[in-house]
Design a protein around this nucleic acid. Structure first.
Lengths: 216, 216
DNA sequence: GCGATTTTTTACCGTTTGGTCAAGCCACGA
DNA sequence: TCGTGGCTTGACCAAACGGTAAAAAATCGC
């Protein structure tokens, strides 16, 4: 209720903030928090270090800002799992979205990986209060689908975790993957097809079993 | 051919070197290379920083030593894939060994993850000259098994990569997993069973198809 | 017990780091 | 045209960093 608190973000402000976040994402995702330096970020953003600190009060503030934005982006695909849809299609669509994110936003994935690797010192609350509830909701949905026989039975939590493991691996371990599978162009296509196959084989429900044919 | 080059490692030397590596593993795996400090490592090893540098000439030397030892440990399970064994059993055994390693040596896994995340600046040669050939050999083995109809057809490289993704995830993203699946004791059992199921479903070959029953 | 060698410590060095400050620049409205 | 206020910069700082030198302490062979 202050009387017109202040003039809001000017054009130059938004531009520079965006530049800084872009540069910081580049540096943090590759070097981790402590490995990154303000000079590196300022350099990548094309401005001086004091100027950078004019827009963000500290190195940590930049990092936190990135992680906050990341969390929303990261949760979105999972949120789109539609309870009214065809179970297997919904899940395969989710896998496709996650693979797409690994391909298009590998830096975000590595930023996240770095944070978790270090014990999520800054993201722990987010994980507990935003990710966990959503995770539980979707686990319940998966369990319902399984109980209805529309998905093969499995531990829903483990299913989601393995989807994350499979999809994010291609971004986080990109260096290793590139060494082992040097195929540039076809690599992502092969990866996506493979992960989709894995999840399909895992979750495709057994046919309604018309007679006694399963045993031998 | 020097005349009696030097007295070899004394008892106190081996003890202190071991302490240092143990401490460094703890710190590096959690903080990454640049995030770790010599003071932290020295502290964790229970000795002074100069004393630490008496045993290893630099921070990088410690890191390299750890990575070298790690590579051997990491390759061993894959090397044990027996071409003469029953394909599915061999692979499931390999998965079991990898899960066991994630459970017993999460710090090693995270050390590796950190290194790869940062583009493998120190491990790149190792990956290319030790991991890659072994990887290719085992891919060929998998392909042979698939051609013989003893494993379901799939891209062998992607199969190995996804096994790594699934198993290492439980060590590298332990923080996240613990938040989502707080179950302490049963957690690892559930995880192992799940991963084994995923791989089994992926690679179990279709039955010999006695007649025309697959199509409805 | 004693000399020689290995191990440990104290004190220190140059550099890098995150961050500050005061002054300068520049766009823009009056 | 000239202020005025947001934007930018060079110079600087204290702390933390990786690493060194030399002397003290502990250990070992004898």
């Amino acid at each position: 209720m202050e009387a017109t608190p202040a003039k809001k973000t000017s054009r130059i402000q938004t531009r520079n903030r965006r530049r800084i976040l872009e540069a910081a994402l580049e540096v943090f995702s590759q070097q981790g928090f402590r490995g990154a330096t303000l000079d590196q970020i300022a350099d990548a953003a094309g401005m001086s270090k004091p100027n950078l600190l004019y827009y963000y009060e500290s190195k940590e503030a930049i990092h936190v800002q990135l992680l906050n934005a990341l969390m929303e982006k990261w949760l979105a695909p999972l949120d789109h799992l539609d309870p009214a849809g065809e179970p297997l299609d919904e899940i395969l669509g989710y896998v496709r979205r996650k693979m797409e994110m690994s391909r298009r936003f590998p830096r975000e994935s590595r930023l996240f990986a770095n944070e978790i690797l270090q014990g999520a010192p800054r993201m722990h609350p987010h994980l507990q209060h935003r990710l966990k509830p959503l995770f539980d909701t979707k686990c319940a949905l998966l369990r319902r689908w399984m109980d209805e026989g529309r998905l093969a039975k499995a531990d829903p939590a483990q299913v989601l975790i393995s989807i994350w493991a499979l999809t994010q691996h291609y971004a986080d371990f990109d260096t290793q993957v590139r060494i082992l599978v040097p195929d540039e162009s076809a690599g992502w296509r092969a990866a996506q097809d493979h992960v989709l196959t894995v999840v399909r084989k895992l979750l495709t429900p057994a046919p309604p079993a018309p007679a006694a044919s399963t045993l031998r």
